[in-house]
Design a protein around this nucleic acid. Structure first.
Lengths: 344, 344
DNA sequence: TTCGATATTGGAAGCGCTTCCAAAACTGCG
DNA sequence: CGCAGTTTTGGAAGCGCTTCCAATATCGAA
């Protein structure tokens, strides 16, 4: 219960000035090897840990990043998608000596833009990671950009990708990969259960799917498109309708695993056999895709890695603030993978 | 991009001293209504927000809580169980003006106790929320207790509940409720897929189950017990074995939903019909239980509420530090609920 | 009206750190 | 050996807040 050692204790122990200790701890190049060793020895001996609060106060930097998720009201707990992203980001942040705070914002709330802008100031973070659909909100991103705060976009569409550093898979290519596989199986009629309109990456997947159709000389009207909201529930409801329509598609391609799980549920309820009567595919390869029966054929997104990359881009942006890197538009594309399981 | 207003700006605007503004902001009783109004007006006018870093540095309190989860290596992303707990805790923390940082610690790591102890110091939080299996670790909790840091236990067993404030359901009663329902259905032979040995609450559920057996005059050996680790995978593997044993049980009671989902998966793979050939029950009522087919009969735990309560107990412990409340052993029991679905 | 007790207020000293600036210690070269 | 140029170091001023202590205002009772 004794008081924690402060920088002054270390300075005394090492026989140098407080400023010198600070320099060593912040790896300032202007320090001699001799002093560096002495300080480090003192740090070890006293088991000294810098007080982040004090450091932040003095330096003005918070060493904190905010991760912004969409949460439509509080109906759903964090989906696995968010959890995985957060986990990856959290680890990377810790590794770089940053903290990460997750915030959920309701995109249907009128003031969601103000909310996010406030994050930048109120919580005083050094950077923001924006996930869909916020990463597709051109207006908001331009505002953020103006305000000078560092940010990174996750899974953003092309329009906003041009506005700042971003990480994500090649959604169009993923859609095409999936389509090609399905058409090779001989499927011809399909339905796409997509995301809300503002969600660009889901739309890109559809574009890819269409490209694959085109390449396989499948007519444009062989696909019907429905707009979901990424929840299990919307999957169940919309799929039910599709399955009971006059002409049932051979495959239902869903824009995420949760909706695919919902569709699967609907199929079971209607007594349809998957994949004999209908094939269903998911997207993301979250644990959900292996929990359901039959397990989902899906596209793997390296979500943990995406989260980690986002943090790393942010770190780079913060460090390179004075330099030339800060403003550059880095577009990092991580690889996806088609995962074949039993549902298609 | 202009500098944020500081407490001195507010003081100047309100025509009072800095200390007075501080008092008003911290609702110190020794302030006159007149001054209070003036300060509040100035705050609104300037859109002032206290700088938490500075406040923390000056007051010594971090206004931060740590939430400790178990994560066996990094095989699994956060389960829904953790997410729900975190969400509830996060909201409550925000509401009380606290921040919440989640930490994952690997319980199989030799040094996990040291890790958690370090959290208290390094991240300088005002309190720690311990989830299973850490909330059942008597030694560690006693150490924490010694060190004087505030903590709250989530879903702890009786031995450690006596050591400090805790929140959770009545696990034994939940087990009994479940058992009574199953026996009323006429089931007689069952298996229990529990948690690792150190996980007390899973053991309590089994105790409850046994009580129900006793009350229904079912012999003690009508139940076989297997030790899982709460993952989908362990559910699949252990259930496979059970299902292929000579005498298949009529019901498989699982200590959480993920394992039940795994068991369901195993049943499907073996061509068993659920619940005709075998009934399966879960525990927790996480979204998983509705995603699988058939949806799981399970016990609902109000996880968000538990998370929120944990934070509230911690707030109380921090505030009442000087008073008499701090050291009291509060044992908060929240209600559970038997959820009937198709799997049993 | 006056005085002591009490409720408010202001002043100032830090909390533990970073960073600017100037002082000190080197360096090499004429 | 001396000097300008370059590192390396120490001193000190804050960062924005809380909180102790002393000063002032307010009040009721003598």
């Amino acid at each position: 219960m004794s008081r924690r050692p402060t920088i002054d204790d270390v300075a005394r122990e090492a026989g140098v000035a407080r400023a010198t200790v600070s320099r060593v701890l912040n790896s300032n190049p202007n320090t001699s090897q001799r002093v560096r060793d002495a300080v480090l020895r003192a740090v070890t001996k006293l088991d000294y840990q810098v007080n982040q609060q004090a450091r932040q106060l003095a330096s003005g930097a918070t060493r904190l990043f905010a991760l912004v998720f969409a949460a439509d009201a509080d109906v759903e707990p964090n989906s696995y998608y968010n959890s995985a992203l957060e986990l990856g980001a959290m680890r990377a942040a810790t590794a770089h000596g940053y903290g990460l705070v997750a915030h959920t914002v309701d995109p249907s709330d009128e003031r969601h833009r103000a909310r996010i802008a406030a994050l930048a100031c109120q919580t005083r973070c050094d950077g923001i990671i924006l996930t869909p659909p916020f990463s597709d909100d051109r207006v908001m991103i331009e505002e953020l950009s103006q305000s000078g705060i560092a940010f990174v976009l996750v899974s953003a569409g092309p329009p906003t990708r041009a506005l700042g550093p971003s990480v994500g898979i090649d959604d169009k290519k993923a859609g095409r990969d999936l389509g090609e596989y399905l058409f090779r199986q001989g499927h011809r009629r399909l339905a796409y259960l997509g995301g809300p309109r503002e969600h660009k990456s889901a739309a890109l997947r559809l574009e890819g799917l269409r490209e694959a159709m085109h390449e396989n000389s499948i007519p444009n009207d062989a696909i019907s498109v429905v707009e979901g909201n990424f929840t299990f529930r919307s999957g169940t409801e919309l799929a039910s309708k599709l399955f009971q329509a006059d002409e049932r598609p051979a495959v239902l391609v869903c824009a995420n695993d949760d909706m695919a799980a919902g569709a699967l549920f609907a199929a079971h309820r209607l007594g349809l056999n998957v994949p004999a009567d209908i094939s269903i595919t998911g997207f993301d390869d979250t644990p959900v895709s292996q929990i359901v029966w039959p397990p989902l054929t899906t596209i793997h997104q390296p979500l943990r890695k995406i989260g980690a990359s986002a943090v790393e881009l942010l770190v780079k942006a913060c460090v390179g603030e004075g330099g030339s890197i800060g403003r550059g538009v880095i577009e990092q594309v991580v690889p996806h993978e088609l995962i074949l399981r039993q549902s298609a």
